[in-house]
């Protein structure tokens, strides 16, 4: 079944609204090619059926996947570099000073996709802290089982490692495995991946010192955003740090956070007594 004009139009408007990217008429084949695997995974016969099902039963997770499938082929490693610069320049030094040497620092990459964010953190910290592999543990979660499995595997295609991963880090932390690149075993052991739906009550996780929750909130309505921020705060240390996407904020959503400017970006910390 081919993509109907109505379905294409709906996808086009969605992508424009969420990403400001304009899908020109004539890109129907692209929509078809990128979304067909998603439709088939859900047991639907075609892309128009996928669009119909989301229109009838709105699901932010599916909407997010649609936008992702059409806007980015691959996640960048140092996507919006500021939250990573802040991690090594400010956040980690403070946490290392505040915690006992035998205390594990716990970092959460919520909505980890195929693992680039979690492994970026692992690489940075293994370069910055002499005992990072035993001192830090990184929890990577995603709604999609496929993404969780990809994160666990720690294998990336050539196109994926081309996306914003510094060449010096590629050669230090990855080895070739056929046509793919595999993360070093010591770094893979720092990362534990599991499934997690942020819009539902959270499984037992944490408590976290640092949370990366980037480019997730934009897909949800206000009450859901509030629910997510509230649940995240419950499993964070009182002096922990939250990083959101560049276009996201807690302001006007949840008053229990304090915004801190870090370099060119910002982070959020649980408000005292909240």
């Amino acid at each position: 079944m081919t993509l109907t004009a109505t379905s294409f139009d709906w996808v086009r408007q969605l992508v424009h609204r969420e990403s400001a990217i304009v899908l020109q008429p004539g890109k129907e084949y692209l929509v078809e090619a990128r979304l067909l695997p998603m439709a088939q995974q859900r047991g639907l016969s075609g892309v128009s059926e996928l669009v119909e099902s989301v229109r009838n039963r709105p699901d932010p997770a599916v909407t997010r996947r649609i936008v992702e499938a059409l806007t980015t082929n691959e996640t960048s490693w140092f996507r919006d570099g500021d939250p990573f610069t802040a991690l090594t320049s400010t956040v980690m030094p403070q946490l290392v000073a505040a915690r006992r040497p035998d205390e594990r620092l716990q970092i959460w990459s919520a909505a980890c996709s195929s693992g680039q964010e979690a492994y970026t953190i692992a690489m940075l910290l293994s370069d910055a802290l002499p005992n990072a592999t035993t001192r830090v543990s990184i929890t990577a979660t995603d709604l999609s089982r496929e993404m969780v499995e990809r994160t666990r595997a720690g294998r990336f295609s050539q196109l994926e490692v081309n996306r914003g991963l510094p060449a010096s880090m590629l050669v230090r932390h990855f080895t070739r495995a056929g046509n793919e690149w595999e993360i070093a075993p010591a770094l893979r052991r720092m990362v534990t991946a599991s499934e997690c739906n942020l819009a539902a009550p959270l499984p037992r996780l944490g408590p976290f010192d640092v949370v990366y929750l980037r480019n997730v909130l934009i897909y949800f309505d206000l009450p859901t955003k509030q629910g997510i921020l509230n649940r995240v705060r419950q499993i964070m240390r009182p002096d922990g740090w939250l990083f959101l996407g560049a276009a996201e904020t807690t302001l006007g959503v949840d008053d229990n956070w304090e915004r801190v400017v870090l370099g060119r970006g910002s982070a959020y910390r649980p408000k005292k007594g909240a």
Partner: peptide, 21 residues
């Protein structure tokens, strides 16, 4: 002495990421 390394084939996005780095 090369500062960065982009592997062919690459997308415009990949080149942009390297420029950002």
């Amino acid at each position: 002495g090369a500062h960065e390394y982009l592997i062919k084939p690459f997308t415009a996005d990949a080149l942009r990421d390297k420029l950002a780095l």
